[in-house]
Write a protein that binds this DNA or RNA. Structure first.
Lengths: 242, 242
DNA sequence: CGTGTTGTTGAACTGTCTCAAGGACGGTGG
DNA sequence: CCACCGTCCTTGAGACAGTTCAACAACACG
């Protein structure tokens, strides 16, 4: 029905509970997911028996299932209660033809996430475990929190196990735990269960080689919405929500 | 002129000589590049004074400059004589509106490359240097060569320095050289300058945790063109070239 | 022929990984 | 209420592998 340029966009809203999984391997038709709310991990099996967290989707991120092509047992895992939109056709080129505004929004979301993916590749190139965790905490802090008024402290819930974070950063969970301890001792962060308070944002950024890039990207992503609206579309209130 | 849905696609053909560079940082307008021929590296500065190879673009790959957002001093470097197509507008959603066939082709190219990027993230998660190089040689072998008739030997020119390969794999150049030596001693590869012959493709794949995924992806990418043409477009000869 | 780049290899170092043990916490059942 | 269990997190000691630094060979270039 939706195979070619004709037809309408088929969208479904999916409410996922924590730890609920969505298999995205062999999604031959192809879907485009959009994280309206929540936090999602892309996990897959690599090698013989290992599972790895290959990507983290924050609110506002778009994910086309074609990016998981070739990955065995690729699943989206809700790290917390999550609301997903699922679109067909998968191609934003075709979505853009059917609904230009939606296409533009998805395109921006995809561009931002892919830019962040590039930075993540750079992070994985860091040899030091401290640098990688610092990069990740900057990324998570920018996506999940705003600085508290009057102080540079940023607090957020990071509903991931140490094992998942370590997997995302290509580190050993034990090593990651040690780095967390070091950061705590240096007064950079405080942790309480899976809540993290970044008490010294400046110090964290000094330990994070990619911090400047990540902050740049986050600033442009927030600035992008109204800018793009002014340039490419009639300014519309609707362009903020999904 | 091209700011909204109206107007035409602006395309330019760029011929790059070996080592020629194209700055893609602060490309605010946004372009979409397509590698018609050749081999291109995405390099950027990370941290204070290090440069890193963050991605490799093979023939048929598409690259939107928005993926380099936030990266300081991001450049495309031609590893050999290369022919690039540069398109505006950058968004394939808009390209698809102006030229559905081109949009579909670019969308396929982007999907393939992003799937490969996901696999590369998985590769960087491998702790062993042998596994990472094996992954890379499988990736390069699939992209740059076909198995010789009657034998499983695959030969190709890989016009990258050891330093560039090491950077792409997040390894030390010295370490990489040692792994090359090991592979040579095990009879998996033969090297002659920057020409590589893979003499034992099966053995290489056994050392490469991602080999199955990479082969899957390559098979689908080549199968994709006619399939997609049958399903989504009138079958046209033109869909093979750019 | 000297120079600069690239690739290889050795020896020592450093940081991560591995394995094991123990603590903290929440859920379950008696 | 409390013992038990499983999961998650932390920490220590030792092994291991990649990194670093240095030296040298191969090669292209002017």
């Amino acid at each position: 029905m939706n195979a070619d340029g004709s037809g309408k966009i088929c969208s479904i809203r999916l409410a996922l509970q924590t730890e609920q999984r969505l298999i995205v391997t062999d999604d031959v038709d192809g879907h485009l997911f959009y994280v309206a709310q929540g936090l999602v991990l892309l996990e897959a099996r690599v090698g013989s028996d290992q599972r790895r967290v290959l990507d983290i989707l924050f609110e506002g991120d778009a994910f086309p299932t074609c990016e998981a092509r070739g990955l065995p047992e690729a699943v989206l895992v809700a790290a917390r209660a999550t609301e997903l939109m699922r679109y067909r056709p998968a191609g934003i080129d075709r979505i853009g033809r059917l609904d230009p505004e939606l296409g533009a929004r998805m395109h921006r979301a995809l561009g931002n996430r892919n830019a962040r993916r590039t930075l993540h590749v750079a992070t994985l190139g860091e040899t030091s475990a401290d640098a990688r965790l610092a990069d990740f905490l900057v990324e998570a802090g920018l996506a999940l929190s705003e600085p508290a008024i009057g102080t540079p402290v940023r607090g957020f819930d990071l509903p991931l196990t140490r094992e998942q974070i370590a997997s995302y950063l290509a580190l050993n969970p034990d090593t990651l735990s040690r780095v967390f301890t070091r950061f705590r001792q240096r007064g950079i962060i405080e942790t309480n269960g899976r809540h993290i308070d970044i008490r010294d944002w400046g110090g964290l950024c000094q330990s994070s080689p990619m911090s400047k890039s990540l902050c740049d990207l986050a600033a442009r992503a927030t600035a992008q919405l109204p800018q793009a609206a002014c340039r490419t579309e009639k300014f519309s209130q609707a362009s903020h929500g999904i």
